[in-house]
């Protein structure tokens, strides 16, 4: 979904959203912008609509949405919110912006 389909990327990211809520849409926009600016070509992003797959919410311990999970590189991090705070997003992703 809008992300390059490379197989061995440095950054494996999953963005969980709830349907087309304003927060979700903003989060997708903001995140894609940040990723393109800072990690162009080095990331793999999957966007998952929790509403379509409720069971995943339980598996992934999702409470607050939208939420971005960074599985690699370690350490794993969770970022919640609409990704509007650039400094915090970069911090969470481990990028020194």
């Amino acid at each position: 979904m809008g992300a390059p389909a490379h197989s061995a990327h440095e950054y494996v990211l999953k963005l969980y959203v709830s349907g087309a809520s304003p927060n979700s849409l903003r989060a997708i926009d903001n995140l894609q912008h940040i990723l393109e600016t800072h990690l162009a070509g080095r990331y793999h992003l999957t966007i998952i609509d929790v509403r379509q797959d409720a069971a995943v919410a339980e598996q992934q311990q999702i409470i607050a949405l939208p939420m971005l999970i960074k599985d690699s590189p370690l350490p794993a991090r969770r970022l919640i919110g609409d990704m509007s705070d650039l400094r915090k997003v970069l911090n969470g992703l481990g990028i020194n912006g």
Binding site: S18, S21, V50, A57, E58, I63, I80, D82, M83, K88
Partner: peptide, 21 residues
């Protein structure tokens, strides 16, 4: 410790889980 708040969010994840349950 593993959560970074980056802006506006809601608890719809909890709602969805509860609804599902």
């Amino acid at each position: 410790t593993e959560i970074e708040e980056t802006g506006e969010y809601d608890l719809s994840g909890l709602f969805i889980r509860l609804e599902h349950a």
